[in-house]
């Protein structure tokens, strides 16, 4: 397998297995499985950190309060007094994206294809290919999240300005701006999704190349700090931050 083929192979998401429900074949992609893993991590963390909540916080309760305080402050700074309706959604998306973007640092077990590439021996031939890779390198995930963000923006606009007020906001400050305002609602999810997708996919490819170049010896760990952890957290923050700005613009 040459390098180009290998890279395009790891970039794509694969069907790990398929479910047959009422005669309908439902393929389960590795993206979805990693999402489930991330969800399990997030929910597990949430359960662990909220066990035994007390009025006077101690230990881990301080950490989770710090996180929620952070999300609340950052939501308040853009949305003001409407913030409390959006804190759970932004907090969820931020937590999910932060872990999903950085999840490949947990892929410590080499997959069959990596072992084959490194050693030339085919291990696990009958086990479906699966490796923990960031789900956000799949454009379906980022597009879905961006569309949910824009639905949130529109919903917030209608909820806080009424339907009429929301429609009217397309003509403000001058009616001639209408086409651009409409365009906004297509460009914004596009830019949101492609920014996230491109960053994570780029970081993923760079990391794959570094893996191949160094044979997985120490060096990837150093680069992983930047490409997986830092870039992943930064992109998660940017995604949520831009969403909150769009919401603020819609409800002001």
């Amino acid at each position: 397998m040459d390098l180009g083929k290998y890279l395009s192979h790891v970039m794509e998401s694969h069907v790990v297995f398929s479910l047959n429900i009422f005669g309908v074949e439902i393929p389960i992609f590795d993206t979805i499985i990693v999402m489930w893993i991330v969800m399990a991590i997030v929910i597990g963390l949430a359960l662990y950190f909220t066990r035994n909540l007390k009025q006077v916080p101690e230990g881990r309760q301080n950490l989770i309060e710090l996180y929620i305080e952070f999300v609340t402050n950052f939501t308040k700074s853009t949305l003001g007094h409407h913030a409390k309706y959006f804190v759970p959604y932004f907090g969820t998306v931020l937590l999910f994206l932060a872990i999903a973007n950085a999840v490949s640092i947990f892929s410590i077990i080499p997959s069959g294809e990596q072992l084959y590439h490194l050693t030339g021996i085919k291990f696990f031939e009958h086990i479906p290919e699966f490796e923990i890779r960031p789900p956000t390198k799949d454009i379906n995930v980022t597009v879905c999240m961006a569309i949910m963000s824009i639905i949130l923006v529109i919903g917030a606009g209608i909820r806080f300005k009424t339907f009429k007020g929301f429609l009217k906001s397309f003509l403000e400050p001058v009616p001639i701006i209408l086409p651009f305002k409409i365009l906004d609602y297509f460009i914004r999810p596009l830019s949101l999704s492609l920014r996230l997708f491109g960053n994570i996919l780029g970081a993923f490819i760079v990391m794959e190349l570094i893996y191949l170049a160094s044979n997985g010896f120490v060096i990837p760990a150093v680069f992983s700090l930047y490409f997986d952890l830092f870039d992943g957290l930064l992109q998660a923050y940017i995604f949520v931050f831009l969403t909150s700005i769009y919401v603020a613009e819609a409800i002001e």
Binding site: S13, P27, F29, T31, I32, M35, W36, M39, V42, I43, A46, L47, F49, T50, L53, K54, Q55, P57, I64, E65, I68, E69, T72, K84, V87, P88, Y89, G91, T92, V93, L95, F96, P135, D138, N140, V141, V143, C144, M145, M148
Partner: peptide, 28 residues
Amino acid sequence: KFLMVALNLLILYFILRKILFKRVINVM
């Protein structure tokens, strides 16, 4: 895949809102 992602996110959102945000914000 798209639908499953959306479903996953919505489930995650409702679970987290229930077990994390409501409780912690309530305590705070």
